[in-house]
Each structure stands twice: as structure tokens, then as C-alpha cells.
């Protein structure tokens, strides 16, 4: 029973990880850009959710579509204005885009501080569990996990089985080739970035239900999301989902038997171990 509950907890934690990481993965997969403002977007959306529900009494899940759409629009705009200009610098664009989104994260964190203050906040919804026999399934985590799963599945289906999705992938794999096929690569990138940021914002709405968030949480979220996609394989949607769940289970077990410190440090240790043991898997990044 204990083992099963640890497994359930781990899988649910993994679901949260998929939620936090998959949108970052999309942006990386299509653009080769690691959006360092990712965590700031999640935190901003979460804090907005808190503010909105505190003032209207609405169910936080209602904010989900609002945050998603608003995030997508702002993401697309931000991409066009700030990220696209550095995409023309060839091999250097990776470094430059890293720096631009890094600067952007500072600005967004400041924005969050000005708008919502420095406090940690959370909302008291979906706090209890669904019981299945003696197994407990935390409601908020289940909702987040299902959302993450559906999102990953839709992304996967869209990218591999629809014309527009395939266009996106083509543009990702060979920008020059895509241009010669008449694809507007800049538009494709703007779309991908917009969707990615929209999904990150939606994730923020769910994260604030699960745990307290403050503007300062932003960089932790970015780092966590990156660790997960690095473990799962950058740009590999299925791999990231699997890695997230495995990481969740490992952490769940480690936390139970070894305590809090071990659980907290585990993702970073795993990342380094994987990097050391299998550097080849990271080679294709360039």
C-alpha cells in the first residue's frame, strides 16, 4: 500500500512537472531557444490568478482560458519584438536569445513585484483528495496532471499529424529548407513561441492552486523546467513526459526514505549524473 501511494504521489508530482516543463520544451523544440523568462510567466499568471479570484471570488479554473489566451498574445508579441531579431545570427542566436530572455525575466519579475507584491500566495481550491480504496489522489495535482497530459497529447498529435504542425516541425528542423518551400519561418516561430508562453501562463494558474508562488519563485521554476526537459531530451515531447514522471517517482521515494534535503537536491544530481554518464545524448544540441 505504501509503495502504491508513493507511486501515485510520484506520478502526480511528475504530472506537475510535465505541466511546468512541456511549454518550455515546445519553444526549444521549434526555435532552439531556451526561454529563461518561462518561470516568470508562470509566476505572473499564478499571481494574477490569485489577485483575480481574491477580487471576484471566481473559481481559479475560470482564469485558465483567460491566462492562456493573454499569455499567447503577449508571447507572440514579445517574440516578434525581442526574440526574432536575434534569430538571424546563426550559431550565435542560441546565446543571444538566452541573454534576451534572461533580461526579459528580470523585467517580468519586477513587473510581478510591482503589481502583486513580494508575498507568497496561494488559493484554497481543490485542496482535498479523491480516495480510491485507501489510495489518495490530490485533486489539484490530478487536475494539473490531466491538463498536462491532454496538452502533451494534443501537442504531439498536432505536430505529427496536422499540416500546420508539420510545417512547424519542418521549420524547426531546417529553417533554410522551410524558407525555400515558401514557409514563413518567422511566423512559424512567432506561433510556437506564442503557444508556448500561453501554455506556460495556463500552467501558472494551476501551479498557484497547488503551492504558494511569489515573484521570486520564477527562477526556480525556470531551472526546474529546464532540468526536466534536459533529462527527457530537448524537443522530445514523449521523452519529457516520461522523464518527468520517473523523476517524480524517484523524488517521492527519496523524500520518504531519505528526507527533505535529499528530495530537493535529487533533480540536479540526476541531471549531472546523466550529463556525465551519457554526454552523447546532449551532443545534437548545437
Amino acid at each position: 500500500m505504501l509503495a502504491l501511494q508513493l507511486l501515485v504521489n510520484g506520478i502526480l508530482l511528475g504530472g506537475l512537472y510535465v505541466l511546468v516543463a512541456q511549454s518550455l520544451n515546445l519553444i526549444f523544440g521549434v526555435m532552439g531557444v531556451v526561454n529563461l523568462a518561462h518561470g516568470a510567466v508562470i509566476a505572473l499568471a499564478g499571481l494574477f490568478t490569485y489577485w483575480f479570484t481574491a477580487h471576484t471570488g471566481a473559481n481559479p479554473l475560470l482564469v485558465l482560458p483567460i491566462a492562456g489566451v493573454a499569455g499567447a498574445l503577449m508571447g507572440a508579441l514579445g517574440q516578434r519584438l525581442l526574440v526574432e531579431p536575434v534569430m538571424r545570427h546563426g550559431a550565435r542566436s542560441e546565446l543571444l536569445s538566452l541573454l534576451v530572455t534572461f533580461g526579459l525575466s528580470y523585467i517580468l519579475i519586477e513587473l510581478a513585484l510591482q503589481l502583486f507584491g513580494a508575498d507568497f500566495v496561494s488559493v484554497p481550491d481543490l485542496q482535498s483528495s479523491w480516495q480510491l480504496g485507501s489510495l489518495a489522489f490530490g485533486k489539484a495535482l490530478v487536475v494539473a496532471g490531466v491538463f498536462a497530459l491532454v496538452m502533451s497529447a494534443l501537442l504531439y498529435a498536432w505536430l505529427n499529424h496536422s499540416m500546420s504542425g508539420k510545417t512547424l516541425l519542418a521549420a524547426a528542423q531546417s529553417p533554410t529548407g522551410a524558407i525555400s518551400c515558401g514557409i514563413d519561418v518567422a511566423l512559424v516561430r512567432m506561433t510556437a513561441f506564442g503557444i508556448g508562453v500561453g501554455l506556460a501562463a495556463a500552467a501558472g494558474v494551476l501551479v498557484i492552486i497547488i503551492q504558494p508562488v511569489a515573484p521570486q519563485t520564477a527562477s526556480d521554476l525556470t531551472l526546474l523546467a529546464f532540468v526536466i526537459i534536459a533529462l527527457g531530451g530537448l524537443g522530445d515531447y514523449l521523452g519529457v513526459a516520461i522523464a518527468a514522471v520517473l523523476l517524480g517517482i524517484t523524488q517521492s521515494v527519496a523524500g520518504y526514505y531519505l528526507g527533505g534535503n535529499a528530495e530537493y537536491i535529487l533533480p540536479y544530481v540526476l541531471l549531472l549524473v546523466v550529463m556525465v554518464a551519457r554526454p552523447g545524448r546532449f551532443r545534437r544540441i548545437r
Partner: peptide
């Protein structure tokens, strides 16, 4: 042996581990 963003964030992870230790 890592390159680009992986090296950058791998180092960040290292700092995180040391900080916890």
C-alpha cells in the same frame, strides 16, 4: 563535454547542489 545551454544550466545546477550541501 556539454555545450551551449546545457553547459550553462548544468553549471547552474552544480551551484544549486553545492548550496544545498
Amino acid at each position: 563535454r556539454l555545450r551551449g545551454i546545457l553547459f550553462a544550466l548544468g553549471m547552474l545546477g552544480l551551484a544549486r547542489i553545492l548550496s544545498v550541501v
